[in-house]
């Protein structure tokens, strides 16, 4: 789609000039608001803990220091949960993509009962069992305190299924199927040999959507995993970050080797929070930056259907 600049050819009227200038000022202000909190986390994570605690770190790192990162290296619980988060994200995303692509392929074809299947899927968007009935059912079928719940719960999303279906109906020509079936290809062969290789874009879109959702999920583990040795990163982070105080046990673990000076320990544990934010958020942001164009594509595909 060709995009040209507005108003580049014709001289702008006075009111339009004012508008344009105000618009740029507005966006500079928005960018500041969006970036500053993130920037503050980054500079705090590499500053001296005292300076951070005294509120001196506001514009640039003060007394540059890696101590927070050094301490977080000892934090065994955090790294174990990091490992689990990677496992849950990779496996969960793979399952999600596979199930979604299969379902989307079927729904992009005509078959008896399609209407029912379609309705069953869309209905779940608007009415759900709710937390407690879901919890009891999961317990009954043996998924409580079972790490499998982490990859199965929310494995598919209705929205993603619809995007994938729209992609297949609009981007893969029907004639390809006609041709392939004349050559004797059935649905299986057609799907794996032709549809999947042509679906790079949509698989990328789905993988980013699913992966970010899995990586950032803290709640599923909190509800379904009693045994916190299975907890993923976000659930462990919640204990460190989302409370008014850091628990003594966490601090003790971080400082297992030199747990002597309590004041010193608490001071440094504050900077550890910033470091924990960085190491947990960077993977998601990097994935986003690399896959950026696919997000927009995914949304475009989604909006074609309307």
């Amino acid at each position: 789609m060709a995009k040209e600049k507005h108003g580049s050819a014709i001289k702008l009227s006075r009111s339009d000039q004012i508008f344009t200038v105000c618009n740029y000022i507005f966006w500079a202000f928005i960018l500041l608001i969006v970036i500053y909190p993130l920037y503050l986390i980054v500079i705090s994570s590499v500053s001296d803990p005292y300076a951070v605690l005294n509120g001196e770190v506001l514009l640039y790192p003060v007394d540059f220091s890696w101590i927070g990162y050094e301490k977080i290296m000892n934090y065994g619980t955090l790294w174990r949960s990091y490992g689990w988060a990677v496992v849950y994200t990779v496996v969960g995303t793979a399952i999600g993509i596979f199930f979604t692509m299969l379902m989307a392929y079927a729904l992009s074809n005509q078959f008896i009962g399609k209407g029912i299947v379609n309705f069953m899927i869309v209905f779940t968007m608007f009415f759900s069992g709710g937390l407690i009935p879901t919890f009891l059912v999961m317990r009954d079928i043996g998924l409580y305190n079972n790490p499998l719940i982490m990859v199965l719960m929310g494995a598919m999303s209705v929205w993603n299924t619809m995007i994938a279906r729209t992609y297949m109906t609009t981007s893969i020509p029907r004639e390809l199927y006609e041709a392939a079936s004349i050559d004797g290809a059935d649905h299986f062969r057609y799907f794996f040999r032709i549809v999947l290789p042509l679906s790079g874009t949509i698989v990328a879109v789905l993988s980013v959507y699913y992966a970010v959702a899995k990586w950032n999920d803290y709640f599923t583990a909190m509800v379904y995993l009693r045994d916190n040795s299975y907890w993923p990163l976000q659930t462990v982070l919640r204990q460190i970050l989302a409370s008014l105080t850091v628990s003594a046990g966490d601090v003790a673990e971080m400082f297992a080797d030199d747990y002597t000076d309590v004041a010193e320990t608490l001071r440094v544990s504050n900077v550890v929070k910033y470091c924990a934010i960085i190491i947990s958020t960077v993977p998601a942001v990097i994935l986003y930056l690399f896959m950026q164009e696919y997000f927009v594509k995914g949304v475009m595909i989604g909006s074609v259907k309307g």
Binding site: T124, L136, V137, T161
Partner: peptide, 25 residues
């Protein structure tokens, strides 16, 4: 079209177990 039902199956089982069982619950 019987193969299409196999395509539908994993997703359908997912929706039944994780969404319709809880509705029943």
């Amino acid at each position: 079209d019987w193969q299409l039902y196999i395509f539908v199956l994993p997703g359908l089982i997912y929706y039944i177990v994780f969404h319709y069982f809880p509705l029943y619950g």
